[in-house]
């Protein structure tokens, strides 16, 4: 599928702020399954944009507005084409014990500091375990929406998995975080993915929709023979594997490694945030490409 994406964020401050520095992780990645055809960022008030790729390979755009201002808009535009991924391998549990797998898994197997205390997840972890790693991946993507309600407003951007357990509800970020733990505790390396999801109604009636930034995850599966292990995307918010509606920005161990916007400014003013993501299909039968 081909999409044009427009991700617009506006901060309105109740008093002027200065030295407003931001890091933006919002540009689509180019991977075997997707190609970012063009992308651009505009900032108002105007600022010099600096770009680099971080440790995880995510494109980061940085800028700073030093002079006082009471409004900041960030406008990201991109065109991207996604394609079907090949069928994932279906390795045995034993295949996860090889050196090659462990090296590729690296930090994606490690527990993080803010995980729920021992025991709290033992039941879920056991329930998530399938016959093999691939089955476990798919099972996790079903298990979480079965057990937890998708409800915005219950958790916030800094919530932990424990908060999700307590509330019994959360959003895609929380679901992804829980899935990561369940997979890692089953010995499967897993990484958090940030991106956009073209969540169109099933009847294909809309070509241009308002969405939010989305989070899902990828699990690492050993490939048969000497092949390099393969990352396979699953979406525990929407069940099943990630597909061509998923546009990936980047990945990390958790949310904090790939936040769409991270910033600080000087001043004690409080900010009102308005963000919108509009995704438009460029290759639909309706021919609605702008």
């Amino acid at each position: 599928m081909r999409f044009s994406i427009r991700y617009r964020t506006e901060y309105q401050y109740d008093a002027p702020v200065a030295d407003n520095l931001n890091s933006l992780r919002a540009l689509p990645a180019t991977t075997p399954a997707q190609r970012c055809e063009e992308s651009g960022v505009r900032v108002d008030p105007e600022a010099r944009l600096i770009q680099h790729n971080d440790y995880f390979g995510t494109r980061v755009v940085e800028f700073g507005v030093s002079r006082p201002h009471d409004r900041l808009t960030i406008d990201v535009r991109a065109k991207v084409e996604t394609s079907e991924t090949p069928e994932p391998p279906d390795p045995s549990w034993e295949a996860l014990a090889t050196d090659a797998y462990r090296r590729a898994a690296a930090e994606y197997l490690l527990p993080s500091d803010d995980e729920p205390l021992n025991g709290a997840l033992d039941g879920l972890r056991a329930d998530a375990r399938g016959d093999g790693p691939l089955a476990t991946l798919l099972r996790v993507s079903e298990l979480i929406p079965d057990r937890f309600e998708y409800r915005p407003g219950v958790t916030y951007v800094g919530s932990t998995v424990q908060d999700l357990l307590d509330a019994g509800a959360g959003v895609c970020q929380d679901f992804a975080h829980l899935a990561l733990i369940l997979l890692r505790r089953n010995g499967i390396a897993a990484r958090y993915v940030s991106g956009y999801l073209f969540a169109a109604p099933p009847d294909d009636s809309e070509d241009s929709i308002e969405v939010n930034t989305h989070a899902w995850l990828e699990g690492l599966l050993a490939a048969p023979g000497d092949g390099a292990p393969v990352w396979v995307g699953i979406d525990p918010t929407n069940r099943g594997r990630a597909g061509t509606q998923h546009v990936k920005i980047g990945h990390g161990r958790r949310y904090a490694d790939v936040p769409p916007i991270k910033g600080v400014y000087r001043g004690s003013a409080s900010a009102e945030l308005e963000a919108s993501v509009r995704m438009t299909r460029l290759d639909s039968g309706n021919g609605a490409a702008p």
Binding site: D54, Y55, F56, R102, R103, A106, D257
Partner: peptide, 17 residues
């Protein structure tokens, strides 16, 4: 081993490259 390095709390990913 790489996993030994990435598991260190002071391994600084922002210093990469």
């Amino acid at each position: 081993p790489w996993e030994m390095i990435v598991s260190r709390s002071h391994f600084a990913r922002p210093a990469y490259g």
